[in-house]
């Protein structure tokens, strides 16, 4: 069978890709999508550890991660709507009102 290290390597690579997307993309919605990629990477390693240790707590934790991700999407996209009402477009480089 596949060693648990392979699952963790996959998780690390997915998290790195999500981090690149979050730091690199300009579109605020795609930044939130990259956060979802990172949360999925964490869920993969939680599930792998849950299987390695024969303990359902890892899966419970992953369920809570999914619940918090759903909440994050709701609030984050609500903020995007509020932002785009003031200025159209979804590029983070236009949002410099707090910069001085």
């Amino acid at each position: 069978m596949v060693p648990v290290g392979a699952y963790l390597a996959l998780s690390a690579v997915l998290f790195g890709i999500g981090l690149i997307g979050f730091l690199g993309r300009r579109n605020i919605i795609l930044m939130l999508v990259s956060v979802e990629i990172m949360l999925n990477a964490v869920n993969v390693s939680l599930a792998a550890f849950s299987h390695l240790m024969q303990d359902p707590r890892g899966q419970i934790l992953a369920l809570f991660v999914i619940a918090v991700a759903a909440a994050e999407v709701g609030v984050g996209l609500g903020l995007v709507i509020a932002l785009s009402r003031n200025r159209p477009g979804a590029s983070v480089e236009d949002l410099t009102q707090l910069k001085w």
């Binding site: 596949v2 060693p3 963790l8 690390a12 981090l19």
Partner: peptide, 27 residues
């Protein structure tokens, strides 16, 4: 910079699990 941060994180995480978890039994 973002790409460097992501690649560095992936490399560090890969290296860390390789050191700690290589001898664990397979799933």
């Amino acid at each position: 910079l973002g790409a460097a941060a992501g690649l560095a994180f992936a490399a560090v995480a890969w290296y860390a699990h390789g050191a700690e978890l290589a001898p664990t039994p397979a799933l």
